[in-house]
Simulated scan of single mutants.
Amino acid sequence: MADAIIFGSLLYSHILPPIMAFIGIILLCSGVMDNKRNYTLAGIAIFFGAGLLPFLILPLVIGS
């Protein structure tokens, strides 16, 4: 059980946020350069979601 908590906390604190932030920045830059508002808004949402993900998910995974 402890291994699942450690893997879950690592996944949601160190693995997914950087991947999501990178995708968000790519979408943001692509949207700005190509004048595509949908890409820009999606990039902003994914980037901020990456920043908030650990604070929303980790309390549920750890149980505190």
Rank of each mutant, 00 (worst) to 15 (best):
M1W: 09
M1V: 06
M1S: 09
M1P: 13
D3K: 12
D3N: 10
A4T: 02
A4W: 11
I5F: 11
I6S: 08
F7Q: 10
S9M: 11
S9K: 11
L10K: 12
L10I: 09
L10F: 15
L11V: 02
L11D: 00
Y12I: 01
Y12R: 00
S13T: 10
H14P: 14
I15H: 09
I15S: 07
P18T: 00
P18S: 01
P18Y: 02
I19N: 08
I19Y: 13
M20N: 09
A21G: 08
F22A: 02
F22D: 00
G24F: 06
G24E: 04
I25S: 15
I26S: 04
I26Y: 15
I26C: 14
L28R: 10
C29A: 13
C29N: 13
G31R: 07
V32A: 14
V32D: 11
V32T: 10
M33L: 14
M33A: 11
D34N: 12
D34F: 13
N35P: 11
N35F: 13
K36Q: 06
K36E: 09
N38H: 14
N38P: 15
Y39I: 06
T40A: 08
A42C: 14
A42V: 02
I44R: 15
I44P: 15
I46W: 14
I46P: 14
I46T: 03
F47Q: 07
F47R: 08
F47N: 08
F48G: 04
F48Y: 12
F48T: 04
F48E: 05
G49F: 12
A50H: 09
A50R: 07
A50M: 05
L53V: 07
L53C: 05
P54S: 01
F55C: 01
I57K: 00
I57Y: 09
L58Q: 02
L58S: 05
V61Y: 11
V61L: 06
V61H: 08
V61S: 03
V61K: 03
V61Q: 04
I62A: 10
